[in-house]
Nucleic acid binder design. Structure first.
Length: 746
DNA sequence: CTGCTCGGCCTTTTT
DNA sequence: GGCCGAGCAG
């Protein structure tokens, strides 16, 4: 497509799509069903606005991932070359605004972006500082509460007012300390990147007006997954220039747990009464069979505006539900099937995607694909940068850019070992606290800290000197800085001289970091270490997806949002996995799980396979798995294919339950190389003496199935216990009332 | 005081 | 399987 007349931008679009593209001024809500060409509409709309004479710098387009932003940039550029439209994620926008305008509100632009890991560390420190580290709330839980509060634009004080229970009180106290610690360390967590700009836009009218005038046209993709802070930013930037266009699909809202609020899209018309609403419900992606499955499933959600997806695509093969004996079988058979289909020339590896509900499920797939020599990639963004050795090196870099970054200081200071242990660091932290210094500054005054001596003292002095020396390089090309850090910190020598074989790999990894930085800087001459670090931290999982490679893509259902594949497998469609165990208690949470499944199903273009196994190894134990309730909700034309050893009546399994020696042989005969899990006795021990129950025993309950006894207390008729079930979570029972089969003794 | 090893604990989804 | 804390040796 060339940059020619408006006609070129529109002639392959439907009437509703054209309407959406050519709506000029005023608020616009596009309700776009799955596969209805929404990316195409946004991209064309940006190009169309440019053709209408809107200046590129007046357009702001928000996407859900950096990858989507990059793709949109490319497509807009192909339509209108050389434009300078601002396309990014909300978080990148926030970071950029804070770097640009932060000084107006007293922020240093060299802030470090703290990821969730860092956040939890600061929360933990804050818990300790508040003397609350003995309470039973985990840093993760408190951190999640703080995150939620920020997403709702609640300051610590206002958050404290939302509840008077013990948890809220504790979290509110910690929140205040946490926020101070963050500011002192010149750190921003993910939520701050939205929270601070949103509050600034609320309070600083001058800034708000300036940015509103700058971003005259705003487009937001995946609007159903925005949170209050993001909504506030969008709204505040659309007061003088009310050209806010949002695109989304309530059925694909899958980030409620992260603070996204489905009401943002449902109430858009209330907030903008004059909004034009355009519905795109024609699907260009999938076969009718796949759409029937998707619709039947999502129809079970009660909190939902009814919507029908239509398509003119030819009917393909039926959607198939595949049943396996075990998760291991599932993985192996998948690998074989994919390999066969590719060998037969029907598809390429790149046409296939395998979706999982949880990252933990990729491991089995990984080994099966390796075993069968099926090329694959696991789409998990930061895996490389999350390796210990790379995190260590990145900590040095972060500390160079931001000397106040105490979290990075604590990580780097004794890596390689400089003889600085926990106790010495406690002394250092106490001194820093009293004198209002960063840890690095305190390390520079180590001679004044009498409690420190010997190796620790020398080590800290040396570390301080090293960081000073390296600081001079901070504006140098990123790869040079990393090289200098490796050389002068002793990190490379440590890896080189160790006898550990793994350290050879670690060395290769940190060297690879140099390559990665070089590549990053090569794309644009003036990129610094700071930009490199920001890019890494704000990367999303899909950003690492390389579609140029001819291989099977394995990813979570969440990462799959926005993508499409000719052939899709969803594995482990089992109760407790999807819907997840923790969602079962609340109907609205199960509805979100259903939307997660819906997102997965609607990624498929031609073939869709929904897989489940009868036994699944999970968290170190093998448990019976019940097929997902969502499978029951599919229409009748879905084909059920039982790929278990004997059509579901496996003698191996029966014998295994009996625990006979023959079971091992039968098992091996079926091609299972793994040893058998512990046998489950066939003899049923109903109602053994209530005193006989012990922690750690695996038991079976008539209604809830297999579970593990997690706690036993009391005696006789007062004896109580807790059992954690594979499905349905933990429940309490009175020992001599409950009917249980003991499956394995401890 | 540091640093290693072992054992117990928990595990959704992610910017 | 992976992380954290406890316990122990140097």
């Amino acid at each position: 497509m060339s940059q020619g007349s408006p006609f070129d931008l529109l002639n392959d679009l439907t009437w509703s799509q054209q309407e959406a593209v050519t709506h000029f001024q005023g608020p616009l809500l596009i309700l776009a069903g799955a596969g209805s060409g929404k990316t195409r509409v946004i991209t064309r709309r940006v190009a169309w606005l440019l053709q209408q004479g809107v200046r590129p710098s007046n357009i702001l387009a928000i996407t859900f991932t950096n990858k989507a932003a990059g793709e949109m940039k490319q497509r807009v550029d192909a339509l209108v070359p050389g434009n300078r439209v601002w396309i990014s994620t909300f978080h990148s926008l926030g970071a950029r605004l804070l770097r640009q305008y932060g000084e107006r509100i007293g922020l240093n632009r060299n802030f470090t972006i703290y990821d969730q890991d860092d956040r939890n560390k600061v929360v933990k420190q804050s818990l300790e500082a508040a003397g609350l580290d003995n309470v039973k709330f985990t840093p993760e839980r408190i951190g999640a509460a703080i995150s939620k509060a920020k997403n709702q634009l609640l300051t610590p004080e206002r958050y404290a007012a939302t509840g008077s229970d013990f948890f809220t009180n504790t979290a509110a106290k910690v929140y205040a300390i946490y926020q101070k610690k963050l500011r002192d360390a010149n750190g921003m967590d993910f939520d701050d990147l939205l929270y601070i700009p949103a509050l600034a836009l609320r309070m600083d009218e001058e800034l708000r007006a300036e940015l509103d005038a700058r971003f005259k046209f705003i487009l937001i993709d995946e609007y159903q997954d925005t949170n209050s802070a993001q909504y506030e930013i969008a709204k505040r930037l659309s007061i003088d220039h009310r050209n806010l266009c949002v695109v989304g699909d309530p059925d694909q809202s899958i980030y409620k747990w992260r603070g996204s609020d489905i009401r943002n899209i449902l109430d858009f018309e209330r907030d903008f009464p004059d909004a034009r609403v355009i519905t795109l419900d024609k699907n260009y992606r999938s076969t009718p069979a796949i759409l029937r499955a998707a619709s039947a499933l999502i129809d079970h959600n009660r909190q939902r505006k009814k919507k029908t997806l239509r398509t003119d695509n030819p009917d393909g093969q039926p959607v198939r539900v595949l049943t396996f004996d075990t998760g291991l079988d599932e993985a192996n058979v998948l690998a074989e099937r994919i390999k066969e289909a590719v060998s037969a020339g029907k598809i390429g590896y790149r046409d296939v995607a395998v979706f999982v509900r949880m990252n933990a499920l990729t491991r089995t797939l990984e080994s099966a694909f390796v075993k069968h020599a099926v090329p694959f990639q696991i789409v998990k963004g930061l895996a490389f940068f999350e390796r210990k050795e790379n995190k260590d090196v990145l900590a040095y870099l972060r500390l160079l850019v931001n000397p106040a970054d105490n979290i990075s200081f604590l990580r780097a200071v004794n890596e390689p070992a400089r003889g600085i242990g926990k106790v010495s660091l406690d002394h250092l932290q106490a001194y820093a606290e009293i004198n209002q210094l960063s840890l690095l500054e305190a390390a520079g005054r180590v001679d004044k800290i009498t409690a420190l001596k010997g190796k620790a003292r020398d080590g800290l002095r040396e570390f301080h000197r090293l960081m000073n020396e390296l600081r001079g390089l901070v504006e140098q090309p990123p790869e040079d800085v990393i090289r200098a850090v490796l050389d002068r910190s002793g990190y490379r020598d440590m890896l080189k001289s160790s006898g550990d074989d793994d350290d050879i790999d670690r060395l290769a990894n940190v060297e690879e970091l140099i390559t990665s930085a070089k590549q990053f800087a090569g794309e644009n001459g003036d990129r610094t270490i700071r930009d490199f670090l920001e890019q890494i931290t704000l990367a999303s999982d899909v950003d690492s997806w390389d579609e140029r490679q001819d291989c099977v893509s394995v990813m979570t259902l969440h990462a799959a949002k926005g993508l499409e594949f000719p052939v899709v497998y969803i594995v482990a469609m089992e109760q407790g996995i999807i819907p997840g165990e923790r969602s079962l208690a609340k109907a609205e949470d199960v509805e979100e799980e259903r939307r997660v499944a819906f997102v997965g199903i609607t990624r498929a273009m031609k073939e869709l396979y929904l897989c489940h196994a009868r036994l699944r190894e999970f968290r170190g134990q093998t448990l019976y798995a019940i097929p997902s309730m969502f499978l029951e909700e599919l229409p009748d034309d879905v084909a059920e294919v039982d790929l278990s050893a004997h059509g579901g009546r496996s003698p191996a399994l029966d014998q295994w339950r009996g625990g006979s020696r023959a079971a091992t042989e039968a098992w091996a005969e079926l091609g299972h190389k793994q040893p058998l899990p512990p046998p489950i006795p066939r003899t049923v021990t109903t109602n053994p003496d209530a005193e006989g129950y012990e922690r750690g025993q695996i038991v079976q309950h008539e209604q809830y199935g297999i579970g593990t006894i997690t706690d036993v207390s009391g005696y006789g008729s007062l004896r109580k216990m807790k059992i954690r079930f594979a499905v349905g979570g933990e429940r309490k029972f009175i020992a001599d009332k409950v009917r249980l089969k003991v499956v394995t003794k401890k």
